[in-house]
């Protein structure tokens, strides 16, 4: 296949390991709590990288490390050549369980993120309106999270992350609770935003079709311990429509391959594609 043009590396998982302290019950078995083992992964400037992996393999843990919300127990997390030790304004996270503040309205949830990012009050209103329009929730601005459906909450969470116009967007199964239609709309929207704003995106999903239609590369993870089994370079054009991607001659083969690697990590050929 085509060789990668030399692109600056934005995020680098450098020989990264993460283990949680042993619980009393788990005893002294050191491997019992090793969640991520020797993760080596480069994410390029402006890249859309999708991570797929079985439940519990450590995807969320990986994202926390990239966000600077937790520190690795081995190796290091690098952003633009510097070791990540804490969250930063250039990174924004969409959490798996929305993480909306139930005591704030939709509007205030988003304005809160803007205020935290130091956006002056007078421009907040405009920006909240804009991202709400983007996810089709202008009418829900004054509602509280408990008055929203799961899909709506997820869209608010996405809007909140986009509102701060991050350079690096870390998304943990952000479309999981959406119906097929909304999901596809937002996939298209996200790809459009990514191309336009030149964001670097790490997107976690367990849906292979979603991985194929969104990303430029797909990192496939295995579990126990969590590791990157293979990284698949996708042949689709960045500006290809989702429909074009799904009818691409290589789509079916790629889909089969990723499926195989997910269920049998040994099937990974590393050099494949």
């Amino acid at each position: 296949m085509t060789t990668q043009p030399a692109r600056p590396i934005r995020l680098r998982f450098e020989n990264l390991s993460k283990s949680y302290p042993a619980t009393v019950r788990a005893g002294r078995n050191a491997t019992g709590n090793l969640v991520l083992k020797d993760i080596e992964l480069d994410v390029f400037e402006g890249e859309f990288l999708v991570i797929v992996g079985p439940s519990g393999c450590g995807k969320s843990t990986l994202l926390d490390l990239a966000a600077g919300l937790s520190l690795p127990t081995g190796g290091r997390m690098v952003l633009d050549g510097r070791t990540v030790t804490k969250p930063g304004p250039e990174r924004s996270v969409v959490f798996q369980n929305y993480a909306l503040f139930p005591w704030k309205t939709v509007f205030d949830n988003i304005a809160f993120a803007l205020a935290a990012a130091g956006v002056p009050r007078r421009t907040q209103y405009e920006r909240v309106r804009r991202v709400l329009a983007l996810v089709g929730l202008e009418d829900a601005a004054d509602r509280y999270p408990h008055q929203l459906s799961g899909g709506m909450k997820q869209r608010v969470a996405i809007a909140r992350s986009l509102s701060v116009e991050p350079e690096v967007l870390l998304m943990d199964e952000p479309f999981g609770a959406l119906d097929a239609q909304t999901r596809e709309d937002l996939q298209v929207e996200l790809r459009r935003l990514w191309r336009r704003n030149n964001m670097t995106i790490i997107f976690i999903t367990h849906d292979i079709d979603e991985a194929l239609s969104l990303g430029q590369r797909v990192a496939v993870m295995g579990r126990a311990p969590g590791r990157v089994v293979d990284v698949v370079q996708l042949p689709f054009q960045p500006d290809a429509a989702v429909d074009e991607i799904r009818t691409h001659p290589e789509y079916g083969e790629l889909r089969r391959y990723i499926r195989a690697v997910l269920s049998h990590p040994d099937a990974a050929t590393q050099a494949a594609v």
Binding site: D64, L69, P87, F95, A99, F101
Partner: peptide, 12 residues
Amino acid sequence: PLWIKAGRSMGL
């Protein structure tokens, strides 16, 4: 803890 995490990710 997720709310704390969200707050921290926003820089608080």
